[in-house]
Design a protein around this nucleic acid. Structure first.
Lengths: 147, 147
DNA sequence: AACCAGTTACTTGACAATATGAAATATTTA
DNA sequence: TAAATATTTCATATTGTCAAGTAACTGGTT
């Protein structure tokens, strides 16, 4: 296990990633707050705006207990952003889906995530491609060349 | 406002960063849980292991209300990981510092953050330098060439 | 020096949101 | 029928905000 724990270059990259993570969360919560949503609520609403899904799957995506999702969806439903409907294939399951208002809110939320866009605007296309490839390799994703 | 919201390359990089963020938090919380610490507790302990500081400064670093820090440090103190001491220069201030056990725990925690190291191990030195420079520019940091 | 107003640091209390885990209900599956 | 699954409810802990309270510092005045 000769992992290079003290390699200064690695440490610096780790710290930079930590900064990226912190700023990402900060901006995400700010954007959510601008719509009077908590971070968790915004995340669930964003998930559902891509695709309605059962409560259990939300819990899996969020990596939390299903009982926790009940409360979050309750609050979103109370605000008219999400609706619970039956699953025709399984009467135990409840499918959560955004209302029209919820879909609009999710769209606005996505638009207001400036962090993603603005700093990247400072990079050239070439830079962005490079960054994409490095992140892909870091995450162990195959990338299109392997597909 | 001609922000390129739909530029596919930008969107992909944004999504990759989102994945990095998610994995970072996941591993951080796992590492913390392995020491029976919550994420917030681990973050505060990590902060203090770099440098003891007043309660207020912890709140600033965490971007939360000082009253919140009181509870987190209370719990860390109850477990013998952190101690509150007086600030000789200002008797209103309480300096939080890790105990020896706390310092050891923080060190182990840092060591178990494999996400930081392992994926980076898949990158060459050249790659890491490139990633560092791109992240730096993305974050609007000057970098050493400007220092 | 003493005093007083305003500010600052921290804590406490009330409350909401998030999170877990155990137990209950309804439904599906074998 | 028995076991497993999806969801909810309840008890409880943590995290977070805000308002109020206490202690201590600061600056300006005598």
């Amino acid at each position: 296990m000769a992992t290079p724990r003290t390699d200064p270059l690695t440490l610096e990259v780790v710290e930079l990633i930590g900064t990226v993570v912190a700023r990402y969360y900060e901006e995400y919560d700010e954007a959510a707050a601008a719509h009077s949503l908590t971070g968790a609520q915004a995340r669930v609403l964003g998930l559902l705006s891509l695709e309605p899904m059962p409560m259990r799957r939300i819990a899996q995506k969020l990596k939390c207990e299903p009982s926790n999702v009940t409360g979050i969806v309750d609050r979103l439903e109370a605000r008219g952003l999400v609706e619970r409907g039956p699953d025709p294939a399984d009467r135990r399951v409840k499918l959560a889906a955004p209302t029209e208002l919820g879909a609009r809110t999710a769209h606005q939320l996505r638009d207001s995530l400036t962090f993603a866009r603005e700093p990247l605007a400072g990079l050239s296309d070439e830079d962005r491609r490079m960054l994409r490839d490095l992140l892909r390799r870091m995450l162990g994703e195959p990338g299109p060349s392997a597909g």
